[in-house]
Simulated scan of single mutants.
Amino acid sequence: MSSTMVFINDIEIAAADETLDEEALRQRACTELLRQRAQALGLLAGDDAAPRAGAISEAASQAIEALIAQELAGPVPDEAACRRHFEANSRHFAHGERLQLRHILFAVTPGVDVVRLRQRAEGHLIELRASEVPAFTDAAKELSNCPSGAEGGALGWLTAQDCAPEFAKELFGRSEIGVLPQLAHSRFGLHIVAIDAREPGRLPAFEQVREAVAQELRQRHGLSALRHYLLQLADDASLRGVSIGAAATPLVQ
């Protein structure tokens, strides 16, 4: 948690009185490194306002997009690469897959201690992984911040389109049944998820989803390139109070 001021090249990105977990600090650091790089390359005015409470200007946001497009443009995946990816991940491209779900939501709200919330959720996850269905139902009624808690966490049958995209990405196109071994994440918070049943979707022909396959490969390359780029920027910068060395996929807002 942030307890001291945090700086990137003498630009403050977090004040001492802000309560931020390490991931939030890293996200701010990644964004500021990119903002300053955009200034250095002339993509953003030198007098662009420094971020306030993590918020950057609209001009800075556009400049960062231009920077990424300019510096990290990757190769266009060829037909063979697309086919290999499709064959290895065909379930991911299925249409109409449905899951019967139960969940327990630990909501992330303003001012919440996210580290402690995660520890609490993970503790309950370990207990429930070794428990029977009634234990999950009782835990959902007691713990969940979702209205579904009153129904034991039951969400019924859902498709990916019924869920927040980031939540669906962690659940669909897989094969697990039962209480998942890790927490699922969404814009609402942290979830313990139990999958009671899966109905597989229809697998399309490669030709029907070729562009989607190519787009996914481009995104994967872009995220990997962005990680390396940020680490290079961090090596050349002066960072105080934060490190991005342990950062996962950076999400630049």
Rank of each mutant, 00 (worst) to 15 (best):
I13V: 06
E18T: 02
T19W: 03
E22S: 12
R28L: 12
C30T: 07
R35C: 15
A38L: 07
G42A: 12
D48F: 09
G54T: 10
A55H: 08
S61R: 15
A66E: 14
L67V: 09
A69W: 06
L72A: 14
A73P: 03
G74F: 07
P75V: 14
P77W: 01
E79A: 14
A80K: 13
A81Y: 00
C82R: 14
E87C: 01
H92N: 06
H92M: 03
G96Y: 04
R98I: 02
I104P: 07
T109Q: 15
V112Q: 09
R118N: 11
E122C: 10
G123V: 12
R129P: 04
R129H: 03
R129G: 06
V133D: 09
F136H: 05
D138I: 11
K141S: 03
S144R: 05
N145A: 15
N145K: 08
C146Q: 05
A150T: 08
G152E: 01
A164F: 08
F167P: 01
E170R: 04
E170M: 08
G173W: 01
G178V: 05
V179S: 02
Q182D: 12
A184K: 12
S186Q: 03
A197W: 02
G201E: 07
P204V: 03
P204F: 04
R218F: 04
R220T: 10
H221W: 11
G222C: 07
L223V: 14
S224F: 08
H228I: 13
A234E: 09
L239C: 08
Q253Y: 07
Q253W: 11
